[in-house]
Nucleic acid binder design. Structure first.
Lengths: 66, 66
DNA sequence: AAAAAATGTCAAGTACACTTTGCATATTTT
DNA sequence: AAAATATGCAAAGTGTACTTGACATTTTTT
């Protein structure tokens, strides 16, 4: 699923490692989300959105669903 | 994870079966979410929220995270 | 230019979201 | 009260989110 994670991360000038630690997953998980290898779980989506002070819907792109 | 799914479904006077069909999962999945057997995927959470014309954050309870 | 930090990827393993089928009980409708 | 509909649950299977560890390449810093 497309998302603004990479763009938000760059705006905040933090590495994948820093974001990973902040939301309590491995760096590999962040890489996979940014490269659209798979879709975040609901809880991880929430943690990432909250980290950037945004809503889930603001971070993830649901336009291609259904 | 706690959610307002059951309450919203009753407000809308639809069965688990109807909601399941609307969001393209089995009735068992809806039962499991309502009984907190597991947490919806991001995509399913979105579909359910959209069905009720709400945001994901309005339907699911993230207050117990972290 | 060299060193350090950041990123992408691969492979194998674990945990859990979701399916399918089927049955038992509860609730609603007739 | 009987019939129909709705709900809860169990067990076994599939797919995928996420982990771990390790390596190669790119980007940034010195």
């Amino acid at each position: 699923m497309k998302s603004k994670i990479k763009a938000l991360r760059k705006q905040h000038r933090i590495s994948q490692d820093e974001l990973a630690e902040a939301v309590d997953v491995t760096r590999q998980t962040i890489t996979s989300l940014e490269c659209e290898k798979y879709t975040a779980s609901l809880v991880l989506a929430y943690k990432i959105a909250r980290y950037f002070h945004l809503t889930i819907e603001e971070v993830f792109d649901f336009s291609e669903i259904q």
